[in-house]
Design a protein around this nucleic acid. Structure first.
Lengths: 365, 365
DNA sequence: TTGAAAGCGCTACCAA
DNA sequence: TTGGTAGCGCTTTCAA
C-alpha cells in the first residue's frame, strides 16, 4: 500500500496527473472486492452498515466519482440528450435552449448541442454523431432545407425518441412543440384593426416556409373576419434572404408600400428581422410611427421596449417551448409517454402592446 | 443467417427497435473475427484489399456506426469538451459559443454545455459532471461568485486542461482569452474627447468586478492623458444589480447627472444593460442625443444601428473570443500547447462609431 | 453479507 | 494477412 502511494506521488510529480480512482483501486485499498464496493456506493441492501461506511468515507476522502463512460457503456444509455438547432447565435434559440437545459438538468440529463447551420447534410451528420454518442433522445428544430425527414424516421425506428420544436409542421409525424403561428398573426392583425387601422399591410418571408404561411393565414383570416378586403398590393414576401439582401428587400417593400396611391396605415411584420429592418426603413423615409404607420411585429428582442417608439410585438414563449419539448422527450425516454401517440403542442403567443401600434388618433371608436 | 434475419424482423416488429450493429454482429455475418473487422474499418495495412471491401460494403449497407461510448471507455477519452457559462440566454454568450463550436467541430470534438447561473456551487457541480463525463478539457467563464478557484486547479491537477474565457483576471493562473477592457474603455472615452466632449460621465457596475474595474481605469486613464480632471460626481456605480433594480439605479444616476450644476455633455456606459437603460432614461427625460448628451457604450446587441439615434458602441469580438479559447484548449488537449505556460490573450475591441456620439456641434476643432 | 465472474463494444497486442 | 485475447470501469447475476 505504501508502494502504491509513493508510486502515485511520483506519477503526480512527473506528469502532473492524478488518475481518477476506480472501483478496483478502492477495492484494493480497502481489502474488499470490486462488487462489494460498487454495491456499497449504490447503497445496496446486501452490504453491511459498517462496510458501507468504510467505503463511503474512503470514496469521499479520495474524491472518487464514477466514470460515466463505463457506466454508459454498461447500461447502454448515456444520460444525455442531443439538441440540433440551426444556429446558437440567435436570441430566440438561446432562450429555447435555456428552457431545454432547465428541464434536462432537472431530470439529470446532459445536453449535447449541435448546429446544422441550415444545412440538411449537416443536420444529418449531427444526428449521426448524436446517435453514435449514445444520446437517449433528440430534440431538433429542422433546417430550412429539410423537406425529407427520412433521417429522423430512421433514427426513431431504431428506438430513439425524437421531438421537434419551434419549426414544426405536418410533414413529419412526431411529438412537436411550437407556437400557434396562425393565432399569433391573427391576434396581431386583430389588434391593429381594433385600434382603428384599416389599411393593414404585411411583410412576410417565404415562400414555402411553414410557419410563415401560417402567419399569412392568420393575417388573412383576421382581415376576413372583420370584413376588410385582402389587397395583394399590401402584402410583400421578402424572399428567404438573410443579412443585407433581406434588408434591401425590406427597404424596397417599404418604399413601394409608401408609394401606393392609398398607402397602408399599419404594418404587420412576420419575423424578427423584418420588424427591425422595417422600423429602420420607416425611420429613414421620415415616416412617423404610429402617426403615419403603425407597426407590430413578431420579435424576440428584449430591446423592443427601448426602441423608438417602443415596438409592439408578438412575444413567443421561447423558454417554454424548449422546456416543454424537453419534458416530452424525457417522458418518451423514460417510457412515460407512448412513442406512437404523436402530439403537437402549440403554445399561445403573448401580445405585448406598446407605442408603435397605439390607437389611431383619427379613429372614432 | 436466415434465422438471424427473421429474428431481427420479429424484434423490429414487436419493439420497433433495430439494435445497432456491433463489430461482433458483422464478424459473425461475414465469417471473420472481430479484430479483423475492426482493423478493416480503420483501414489497417494489415488487412487484405478484398476483405476490407467486403467489410466496408457490409458496414455501409447495414448502416454500421461505431459505439462511441465503448470507444471512449477503451481509449480513455471522450472526444468532447465541456463548456461552463453562467447563462446561455445572452447574446454575447451565444456568439462566444458559436465561436467555440466552430473550433471544436473543426477539430472533431463535441460540446457539452452547462450553465452555472452565476452560482459557485452550481459551477462546481458542472465541473464535476463534466469530469465524470470524461470531457477532455474545460472552457469556463466563471460565475460572479467565483473568487476561489480551487475547483479549477483541482481539476487541472488531474490532468484536465482548463481555459478561461471572457471573464478573465489574475486570480487564477491559466490560459485565458478575453478582451482588453481597459483599452476598450480608454478608446471609447478618447473618442468622445476627440469629438469635442469634455464633461464626460461614466456609468459602471461593480464594485469588485474585475472587468468593470478595468473599464473604470481605461476611462480615468483617457481623461488623464488628455488633461481632463476626473470628477467624482460624474461617475456612478450602479451596484451589481439586475433587471428592474438595475434599471432603477440607472434612472437615478441619470437624474442626478442631469441635475448637476454643470451636467456632463457625454456619457460612457460600461455595460450592455447600462447602455440600453441609459438610452431609455435619457429619452424619458427628454434629453436629446447627442445634442444634449452624447452616448457611447459597451454593447452586444446587433440592434445598436437601429436604435434612435443609432448607438455608438464598443464592439467585443465574441465569436473570436470563443474560437480562440477553444483552439487553445484543443492545443492543450492534443499536447501542442504546454500546460504550464500560462498565457492571457486579450483581443482588441472595435469602436463602432454612430450617431449617438457624433462630433459636438459647438466644438471648434 | 461478501466475492467471483461475465460482459457492455471497442482497440491493441501478440500469435498464428 | 488474420484471429484470439485482454481489458477499459462499471453493473449484475449467481455462488459462497
Amino acid at each position: 500500500m505504501d508502494a502504491d502511494i509513493s508510486g502515485m506521488l511520483i506519477f503526480s510529480i512527473y506528469l502532473n496527473v492524478m488518475p481518477n480512482l476506480t472501483l478496483r483501486d478502492m477495492a484494493k485499498a480497502l481489502g474488499l472486492s470490486v462488487s462489494t464496493v460498487s454495491k456499497a456506493l449504490r447503497d445496496s441492501y446486501e452490504i453491511g452498515a459498517e462496510t458501507k461506511k468504510r467505503v463511503l468515507d474512503y470514496a469521499q476522502a479520495n474524491h472518487y466519482f464514477p466514470n460515466r463512460m463505463a457506466k454508459s457503456l454498461k447500461e447502454g444509455k448515456s444520460g444525455s440528450v442531443g439538441v440540433v438547432i440551426c444556429s446558437i447565435d440567435n436570441n430566440f434559440v438561446s432562450r429555447m435552449l435555456d428552457g431545454i437545459d432547465s428541464a434536462c438538468t432537472k431530470a439529470g440529463y446532459d445536453l449535447i448541442i449541435m448546429q446544422s447551420k441550415e444545412s440538411l447534410s449537416q443536420e444529418k451528420s449531427c444526428i449521426r454523431q448524436l446517435e453514435a454518442r449514445g444520446v437517449e433522445g433528440v430534440l431538433i428544430s429542422p433546417s430550412s432545407e429539410t423537406v425529407d425527414f427520412a433521417h429522423l424516421s430512421d433514427v426513431r425506428a431504431m428506438g430513439m425518441p425524437v421531438v421537434l420544436f419551434d419549426r414544426i409542421g405536418d410533414r413529419f409525424g412526431s411529438y412537436q412543440v411550437g407556437i400557434d403561428n396562425r393565432d399569433g398573426a391573427f391576434r396581431a392583425t386583430q389588434h391593429l384593426i381594433a385600434n382603428g387601422y384599416k389599411r393593414i399591410a404585411m411583410l412576410n418571408i417565404g415562400p414555402g416556409i411553414h410557419f410563415a404561411m401560417q402567419r399569412s393565414r392568420g393575417y388573412a383570416d383576421a382581415l376576413e373576419e372583420h370584413g376588410i378586403p385582402y389587397r395583394d398590393e399590401y402584402v410583400h414576401v421578402c424572399g428567404p434572404l438573410a443579412g443585407e439582401a433581406l434588408k434591401g428587400a425590406v427597404t424596397d417593400a417599404i418604399r413601394s408600400l409608401l408609394a401606393l396611391p392609398e398607402p397602408p396605415d399599419a404594418l404587420f411584420t412576420a419575423t424578427d428581422q423584418l420588424s427591425t429592418f422595417s422600423l429602420r426603413a420607416l425611420h429613414e423615409r421620415g415616416c412617423r410611427i404610429p402617426e403615419d404607420m403603425a407597426l407590430i411585429g413578431f420579435c424576440n428582442t428584449e430591446l423592443a421596449p427601448i426602441l423608438t417608439p417602443p415596438l409592439s410585438t408578438v412575444y413567443q414563449p421561447a423558454f417554454e417551448i424548449g422546456r416543454i419539448a424537453a419534458e416530452k422527450l424525457i417522458g418518451l425516454i423514460t417510457g412515460k409517454e407512448h412513442p406512437d401517440h404523436y402530439e403537437t403542442v402549440m403554445l399561445p403567443i403573448r401580445l405585448d402592446v406598446r407605442e408603435s401600434s397605439r390607437r389611431k388618433a383619427s379613429a372614432s371608436a
